[in-house]
Simulated assay, not measured.
Amino acid sequence: MDLSAVIENHRAALRRIVAALVAMVEMGGQFALFPGKGVAASTPAQAEKSEPSPAPGLPRHLYRAVLRLLRPAESAARRLVIVLARGVVVALPPRHARKAKPKPRPTSIFVRDGVGTGIVLPRGAPVPAHLAHLVPRKTAARPLSFPLLDPLTRWSRHRRRAVATSVPRICIAGITQHLAVPAWKPPSPDDPLDAGRLGRRLAALARALDDLPGQVKRFARWKARRDQALAAGRICRVTPLRGGRPPGGRLSRYDPDAPPGRNIRDIDEILAHAHALAHYALRPDTS
């Protein structure tokens, strides 16, 4: 088996999937994910030159559909990087002592980070026009880096809080009008969801597929830092993969001779194959 040809085929398939997801988001949200480029020209190769603009809301059903394909595509690309990084060794620069950063002084009377005293506003509350100059300006969202480690499974012993279905009513008899309890509506498939982070994740995945050698160096540096931490006796993460199925995957193992199953997509087969190759690449080299 020619491993380089297999990786290149999977990379090309992932780039086609990313291009399809970009077209879905642009047509569904009616905005340009990559400014200055049309839907037909929005390919993963263009993601390195432009960043996604602030995105309006996407319908909930479209957001979930894109996310169901984006998660396994990210997992497959992550495993291709792990396979290519087998045997790659990099030298880390010497560590420098970090300088203590001075605590920033609050520049606004609105308390958002627990520093100072002032007026606490809930997130998204409108600010009066005569106080708008006291609120610090928001900076542009930074592009996301492609994650090279699987997100760990969350284990929480705390009980989930019940969703509030109403608001408190404060009435004064004879002075204020009696307010009716607002009816709670279940989530609708057409509810708009913010797609800003979704667009940044698509751009990060597209950049990673266009620059696999750079991602390989990143992963080799992570392995070198992990080895240093283990040698020093520090607690750190040992493996980049999490146990069980990969994030977003539907196949437990890769079997090229198995008949096509129900609800099995092309990305599931690519991810299962990349997952098997990544496990083989993480084995210690005994030759």
Score class of each variant (00 low, 15 high):
257 D>H: 09
145 S>I: 11
71 R>Y: 07
135 V>M: 09
260 P>H: 12
116 G>C: 04
132 A>Q: 13
150 D>W: 05
109 I>Q: 09
267 I>Y: 03
64 R>Q: 15
111 V>S: 02
217 K>Y: 06
149 L>R: 14
126 P>H: 07
53 S>H: 05
180 A>L: 13
199 G>Q: 10
205 L>E: 07
165 T>R: 15
170 I>G: 01
116 G>V: 07
161 R>A: 15
113 D>Q: 13
258 A>Q: 10
157 R>A: 11
185 K>Q: 15
37 K>G: 00
51 E>R: 14
274 A>G: 00
38 G>D: 13
14 L>D: 00
66 V>A: 13
96 H>D: 08
91 A>R: 08
79 R>D: 01
22 V>P: 00
94 P>E: 13
203 A>M: 09
126 P>D: 13
18 V>T: 12
150 D>Y: 02
3 L>H: 04
30 Q>I: 08
208 A>G: 02
187 P>K: 14
108 S>M: 06
193 L>T: 02
185 K>H: 15
231 A>Q: 14
51 E>M: 08
128 P>D: 14
108 S>N: 08
30 Q>W: 05
102 P>L: 14
144 L>Y: 08
286 T>N: 10
267 I>L: 05
124 G>V: 10
169 R>V: 11
159 R>N: 06
148 L>K: 04
2 D>G: 03
236 C>N: 04
123 R>G: 02
155 W>H: 14
132 A>G: 01
146 F>A: 05
225 R>Y: 04
276 A>C: 00
278 A>H: 02
79 R>C: 00
282 L>Q: 03
194 D>K: 05
124 G>S: 05
277 L>G: 01
18 V>Q: 01
282 L>C: 02
209 L>G: 01
260 P>V: 14
216 V>R: 04
